[in-house]
Write a protein that binds this DNA or RNA. Sequence first.
DNA 1: AACAAGCGGAGAAAACACCTCAACTTGCCG
DNA 2: CGGCAAGTTGAGGTGTTTTCTCCGCTTGTT
Lengths: 214, 214
Amino acid sequence: MTPTAARPLRRDAERNRQRVLAAARELFAERGLEVTLDDVARRAGLGVGTVYRRFPSREALIEALFSEQLDALVTLAGECLREQNSWDGLVRFLEDFACRHGGDRAMRELLFTGAAQRPDFARIHAELVPAADELVARAQRDGHLRPDLRGTDLPQIELMISSVAECTRGVDPEVWRRYLTLLLDGLRATPRGPSPLPAPALSHEQTEQALHRR
Amino acid sequence: MTPTAARPLRRDAERNRQRVLAAARELFAERGLEVTLDDVARRAGLGVGTVYRRFPSREALIEALFSEQLDALVTLAGECLREQNSWDGLVRFLEDFACRHGGDRAMRELLFTGAAQRPDFARIHAELVPAADELVARAQRDGHLRPDLRGTDLPQIELMISSVAECTRGVDPEVWRRYLTLLLDGLRATPRGPSPLPAPALSHEQTEQALHRR
DNA sequence: AACAAGCGGAGAAAACACCTCAACTTGCCG
DNA sequence: CGGCAAGTTGAGGTGTTTTCTCCGCTTGTT
């Protein structure tokens, strides 16, 4: 489908292609899907023409950037299903997800807002839905997870965590763990008291920064 | 500050002013702060000129729309601090907040993303910060709330809940309560097992809709 | 009736995003 | 090394979008 194709790029061309991808990754993560190919070019230190030569449209660039990340998500779900301890599997899924895509604004827009007319998504979705159901069911069978949770709760939980991650990324890229822990304490079938929080709360100054900065 | 001013508007003018505000409220809630005054005019069934006559800029309109809502927030915090039961006070704060502003995209942008260069916000912020600290401290003194929570956690929690509310508003405007309950179960000092969830999970179809619709 | 207040909405002006192209440079193969 | 295909550049053309003005017309009020 997207094999490395006809002939290999010239060395400099390949290098530039990587620069474009790197710049795009950064910009998309910071600013979301609305970034301009001109922006990307500027950040990459290249002419606009160069960018357009490699990626005829923003679509193509997005495609190139995110299709592998999406596959990785499916893979992750599979691995988590294979963890011995079903609770740990669930936790790892939530955690790794947030870890990889938490602060990435474009990824959030792709996953959580209508931006996903994208073709890949039907497929991904189709694979992720049953995985989520099974992650939940498994942890419930073992008596770890509260029985009233559903597979469809996982995307919403991920949304919550990644919202925090995006908001706070500039100020403390790890605080989202704090809120995941709070949430997990609410997910257990038989609670065992507050778990230690893996990160200190933001200071008032940090909070102000996180909320008011653009 | 914003008194009804000089002379009263002509009857029709006042009616139109209200239409503009209503249309703006709807549009801002749906689409966030980026709506155009032309959009507002169309939705209100009025000419652009009419809108501009009343609100010289988008800024002015936003000001008019949101300044009272911001004050209401401060008031709410005050009331919650005066609730007999400190846990209930905290819960009510989170709940009422989500209830009023949950699905409102513009409000979220104002509160949680840099959009807040707005002058009011300094003031609001200044009043809300100590209130949040006190809500937390009070519930901790009474042994309801886990002792490792901080005042600065409240905005993040509200962000989480309102993210869900915005995502799901078109599909089931009450599911956010489900996630608030999960979270609250994680916030108690001495957990007492899973509380009944106030709303059923989304179906798979609903989830798909919530995530993929624009 | 008369006049101030209000209304409408075409379109001017500016900002912006998207993309092309012709002149120039560079890697690479023979 | 010479030559050419591949690559690069960025100013600027084109189309779109947003903001806001202006003036001929309508409407409320006194």
